[in-house]
């Protein structure tokens, strides 16, 4: 779409059928579902989909899931964390097998979006599965080979709970201006050199960009973490309009 377009082209949002082609075990509680979605219109990094499951009795349950894959990727990928006692996530992150199908609609949510055209610096803060839409941004940044300065602070419970751990290491090893700080809130392996506490003011101030650089900031994860990080950044002088948040829901103790 040319930049001169008056407004976003109107588009009817329809339910599409996704077929799972691959299931990737990310952590003991998290799986990625690689999918084939005919008529998928393409997306921008940070957007999400609504997933709808229909039971044999016709009962339907609907939840939102962020898109993990970059727009450049061949397949659409969602990454789902199993919430104990949950209605939808234990199915998506537990029972789904290649060949299974479900309905989704998207991409939606043009607000929580970053593309290389928006430039940077790019400042990302994630807790637990909140990494998912931010990963789409980092994958897009790598695919576009643009060295926009970027920093990620990522809070997980334990080393084994870090989603996309190897891929994040590889992205940082490119030395193209991306820096990642991990913090582990529950337990740390021997010799751990990252953070050992919840994200706090000192961590945000030292690992982030100064407010004078006006970073585009995206914060995603459990509600409590998101609210704490966003208010801390504002106390540090960051402009509210440059901070975008995506609350996934109750804390569930993550991060």
């Amino acid at each position: 779409m040319p930049a001169t377009e008056a407004v976003a082209a109107p588009r009817r949002l329809e339910w599409l059928t996704a077929t799972v082609t691959d299931v990737i075990v990310e952590t003991p509680r998290v799986k990625s579902l690689v999918q084939d979605v005919p008529r998928w219109p393409g997306h921008r990094p940070g957007q999400h989909v609504d997933v709808r499951l229909t039971g044999e009795d016709g009962y339907q349950a609907q939840r939102s899931y962020s898109i993990a894959s970059a727009p450049e990727a061949a397949h659409l990928t969602l990454t789902v964390e199993r919430i104990e006692e949950g209605e939808v996530s234990p199915y998506l992150a537990g029972e789904v097998r290649p060949g299974d199908q479900f309905e989704l609609r998207g991409p939606i949510g043009g607000y929580f979006v970053w593309t290389v055209a928006a430039q940077g610096p790019l400042f990302l803060i994630a807790g637990g599965s909140g990494i998912v839409p931010l990963m789409a941004m980092l994958r897009h940044r790598a695919a576009a080979s643009v060295a926009v300065p970027a920093r990620l602070i990522y809070s997980s419970r334990t080393f084994g709970d870090i989603i996309y751990r190897d891929e994040l290491d590889r992205l940082m090893a490119r030395r193209d201006g991306l820096e990642i700080v991990h913090t582990l809130t529950r337990s740390q392996p021997a010799g751990w050199s990252g953070g050992m506490r919840r994200i706090d003011r000192e961590m945000v101030a030292s690992a982030g960009f100064p407010s004078s650089q006006r970073p585009r900031t995206f914060i995603c994860g459990p509600t409590q973490l998101v609210e704490y990080a966003a208010s801390t950044l504002q106390e540090l002088g960051h402009e509210a309009s440059l901070i975008k948040t995506e609350r996934f829901g109750p804390t569930g103790g993550v991060g």
Partner: peptide, 20 residues
């Protein structure tokens, strides 16, 4: 949650993305 989470619902009435 953030208004962004209502994107799908709003799309049922609006043909353009309202979240932005």
């Amino acid at each position: 949650l953030d208004g962004n989470s209502a994107a799908g619902l709003l799309h049922e009435l609006f043909a353009v993305d309202l979240t932005s």
